[in-house]
Structures are given as structure tokens and as C-alpha cells.
Write a protein that binds this DNA or RNA. Structure first.
Length: 420
RNA sequence: GGAGAGAUGGCUGAGUGGUCGAAAGCGCAUCCCUGCUAAGGAUGUAAGGGUUUACGCCCUUCGAGGGUUCGAAUCCCUCUCUCUCCGCCA
């Protein structure tokens, strides 16, 4: 959500934001409704002011006849206002719905483009492994080593179901601990967050109304969150924070659930795209300062790159094109790990910042030194998402005999140097 | 699942039909006193919105939504959440 004043003063910026993000939004329609809203508001408010005045008179009048007369007067006076009050309510409803669809302004450095194919690589790291044998994909590798069971996964859970078994399970725990350890050490507060979340948190973070179809709805008003970002942002919903307590940095662990609506033909096998997975997510609530947001965005990206390097997984960082940004994102980097079996980089992490888009919807504010209220800024990035991350880890470290070499940094977390 | 209690400003907490946007305390801000990193005193201090060059004026908000009433923090209904006791349970 953006400030309506800002929208009124900069309609062209909104138009351009919608264009760049390839989002349909009619700013003029909103401005028309806004005009109606203010106009009606003034009529209704002046009527209410009069009403309040008479009410005061009634309470102060000692003359009983006069009192009765005023009360009679109020009865008819109230009737007159009813219609305007009701119209105003409807206009506000319409206004609120439109406001939820106003896209946030993408940063000037965000490249033009419609889809993730237009994302631009800004750097890459690591040597793509050269195998002197035919590399296998993670499915084959994991099944051979009894690390995963996909057949029973779909028997029990259905499409995209999976079991992780033996070292497949242990490797997941090792990764979680590795990332949690290293990132919490940087001052991020470990948090285990609920996955069952209320609708407000999803509206607040921008997943509803835009992506409701990708959420599992479990009962009226309750959903399974697709990311720890949602409950972590909800953590401070409707709160006023102290400036000196910012930034708040979290490393959140949570199960994540995604319908994957509209992606039925993609990544149908294996662990790349599943309905339920686990994620450690970095979430930051910071001061309302663009420069600080930018710096923290680089920080949460660097946190991951550092650990990718420690795990010796070749990756690249792309800056996402306008069309690949969510409605609230100002800028986004994806970190993509090299996947040998597919001979391409696949997204394993996604780092974005939102300015006050989410905090405005969630009503997360802080007071500065002069006592002025501000909506905070928010950012987030994946730390590690399993089982998808296993794909890159396993495939890049496979040996000719089908065993998996464990990167040195991870060995102490798994307790061995090879899976065989 | 059964029974009961509750939800008030940044926080704690009074307030059961008009004088309440709301006592008191804490916290915070400014000033005074003191002169040593203590204590005391004074004043101020909710948010959002409309309007205004500005001072200001006005509207809304006491968990959410409806209702009763000339008038609701206060009465009624629905919902959400919290707490206590019982039951069940990893």
C-alpha cells in the first residue's frame, strides 16, 4: 500500500510502475474514487459536527420542554444523513480495494522486462563442475543412496509428494543448522514461526489479493503460509516500535506450503518444486530510510553468498526485471545455484526490499527522536530452502560412483565427509 | 469440548448512558533545582483523517462488526483473541 497523498501527487509514477511491473492498474479510476471519497467525507463530517453540537446542547439544557424539542429535531436530522453515510461506506470499500492493487514503485536500477527470462545477471561465482562422467540428476542419485522416496511420497501425499530418508533427512537438518548457525551469529534473532496464518498477515505482506490462488486455505480466514516472511512480518503487526530497537533482524524457520497453481507442467519430478518444504528466511524491519534499505538488501544477499561460497556451490546473482517483481517489491535479487543435470542456474534464494509497502498494510510503525511516527521499512531473503537446495548441493558434489562429497564447511553438521 | 472472566493510549490501569479522547502511574520530551553520574520539582505527551498560508477548527477511533438511544468506552447481538478451572492431548 502506498500513501494516497503520494499517489495523488505522483500519478505518473504509479502508471509507470504498473507498466514496468506489467501489472494492470487504473490510477485514474482510483483518483476518481478518491475525489468522491473526500467530497462525501466533507459532507458527512459537517453533518456529524452539527449533530454533535445539538447533542451537546441536549445534555446541557435544563429546560425540559426545550430538551424534548431538540430531541425531536435530532430524530429528523439523523434521517437526512443516512443516505450520505451509506454511500460513503460503499465508496470507502471500493477505495480500499483499489488501494490494495496499487503497485509499489520499482527502483530505477530494476531492468525492464516481462518475465524472469529478462532478469539480468550481475555477478557469478564458482567453477561449474566438469565431470569426466555423465552426471546424474538428484532424483537418481538420491534414490540410489536411499535418501529419498518419491513413489511412496506421491502414494501418501499425492502429486509432488516426497519422503526424505536417511542421509536425505540428515542432510536437511545439517543445512538448517549450518545456515541458522552462521546467520544467527551475525545478530539475526532465531524465530520459529507459525505457518497457519490469518488473512490479515497475507494481505499485509502482499500475497492477498494478488496470489491467493497459490495459498492453501484451511478454513475461513486462515491459510497455510508459503513463506516465513508472512508470520515474521505479522509479528509486529499493529505495533509501534522504538527507533533504537531498529533494525529488527530475524532468521525464521518455518514449514512452507504452496499450491503451485499454474505451474503444473513445470518441474514435475524431484525436489525442485514441491507443495511443502522448509525454509530459513531472513526478515528485517528497519528504519524508513532508502539508503539503509539498500544497504540491508545487499547485506542479506551477501549473507547467503558467503555461505554458498563456503559450500562451494556455483551460483549467480540476477537482478529481477520489472515484470518479475511482486506488487510490493522495490527491487529483487535472485540467487541461482548451478544445477548440473539441467545445465542451468535455478533460483534458490530471493532477496527483496519493500520500503514501507508492507508495513503500511500491516501498520508497523516507530517513533523517531522528535516523536514523529513513521512506517518502518521491510526486507527479506531466503537463507536456505530445503529440499530444493539439496538438488544443487547433491548434484554439484556427485562422484562417478554415485556417492556425494560433503563440502568441508558442512561436514561437522552432518558428521561425515561422504554420503555413499 | 464444558464453565467462567476479560480486551481501554508507547506500557500498566481507572472508568457502567451526556461534564470522557478518556483519571492515576510508568515511560518519553523540555525546563528548573541540585553539582557529581542519585534524588526532587514544573510543564508537555494517543493515532488517523478533512480543512486552513498559519494559529486553529472539525470528524473518526476505548479488540472487530452490527444494533438500541437525541447521545455509547459504558446497554444488546455476532465474531476474534486472551486468561482461569475442568476434560482431552504430542
Amino acid at each position: 500500500m502506498l500513501d494516497i497523498k503520494f499517489i495523488k501527487e505522483n500519478p505518473d509514477l504509479i502508471k509507470d510502475a504498473a507498466r514496468k511491473k506489467h501489472i494492470q492498474f487504473d490510477v485514474d479510476e482510483l483518483l476518481k474514487v478518491e475525489e468522491q471519497r473526500v467530497e462525501l467525507l466533507q459532507v458527512v463530517e459537517s453533518h456529524r459536527a452539527k449533530q454533535n453540537k445539538i447533542t451537546d446542547q441536549i445534555s446541557q439544557t435544563t429546560d425540559q420542554t426545550e430538551k424534548q424539542r431538540l430531541i425531536e429535531e435530532m430524530r429528523t436530522f439523523k434521517e437526512d444523513a443516512k443516505k450520505n453515510e451509506e454511500t460513503l461506506k460503499e465508496v470507502i470499500k471500493e477505495w480500499q480495494l483499489l488501494m490494495l492493487h496499487v503497485p509499489n514503485i520499482p527502483d530505477v536500477s530494476v531492468p525492464e522486462g516481462k518475465t524472469d527470462e529478462d532478469n539480468q545477471e550481475i555477478r557469478n561465482w564458482g567453477e561449474k563442475p566438469e565431470f569426466n562422467f555423465e552426471p546424474k540428476d538428484h532424483i537418481e542419485l538420491m534414490e540410489k543412496l536411499d535418501m529419498a522416496d518419491f513413489e511412496r511420497g506421491s502414494k501418501v501425499s499425492g502429486f509432488r509428494g516426497y519422503f526424505l530418508k536417511n542421509d536425505g533427512a540428515l542432510l536437511s537438518f545439517a543445512l538448517w543448522n549450518f545456515f541458522l548457525d552462521n546467520i544467527s551469529r551475525k545478530g539475526y534473532t532465531p524465530l520459529m514461526a507459525p505457518s497457519i496464518v490469518k488473512k490479515e498477515t497475507l494481505i499485509g505482506t502482499g500475497f492477498i489479493p494478488q496470489h491467493e490462488e497459490d495459498l492453501y486455505k484451511i478454513k475461513e480466514g486462515h491459510y497455510l503460509s508459503g513463506t516465513g516472511e508472512v508470520p515474521t512480518m505479522g509479528y509486529f503487526m499493529d505495533e509501534v516500535l522504538k527507533k533504537e530497537d531498529l533494525p529488527q533482524k530475524f532468521i525464521t524457520f518455518s514449514p512452507c506450503f504452496r499450491e503451485e497453481a499454474g505451474s503444473h507442467g513445470r518441474d514435475v519430478k524431484g525436489l525442485v518444486r514441491v507443495h511443502e518444504f522448509f525454509k530459513l528466511e531472513q526478515v528485517i524491519i528497519s528504519e524508513a530510510d532508502h539508503e539503509q534499505s539498500v544497504n540491508l538488501h545487499e547485506e542479506i544477499t551477501a549473507n547467503v553468498e558467503e555461505l554458498m561460497k563456503a559450500l562451494n556451490i556455483p551460483y549467480r546473482v540476477v537482478v529481477n526485471a520489472g515484470g518479475d517483481l511482486g506488487i510490493g517489491q522495490v527491487k529483487k535479487y535472485d540467487i541461482e545455484a548451478w544445477v548440473p543435470s539441467q545445465n542451468k542456474y535455478r533460483e534458490t534464494h530471493s532477496a527483496s526490499y519493500f520500503h514501507d509497502f508492507q508495513t503500511r498494510r500491516l501498520n508497523i510503525r516507530y517513533k523517531d527522536e522528535s516523536g514523529k511516527m513513521h512506517y518502518a521499512h521491510s526486507l527479506n531473503n531466503t537463507a536456505v530452502a530445503t529440499p530444493r537446495f539439496l538438488v544443487a548441493l547433491i548434484e554439484n558434489n556427485q562422484q562417478e560412483d554415485g556417492s556425494i562429497k560433503i563440502p568441508v564447511a558442512l561436514q561437522k553438521y552432518l558428521g561425515k565427509d561422504t554420503i555413499s
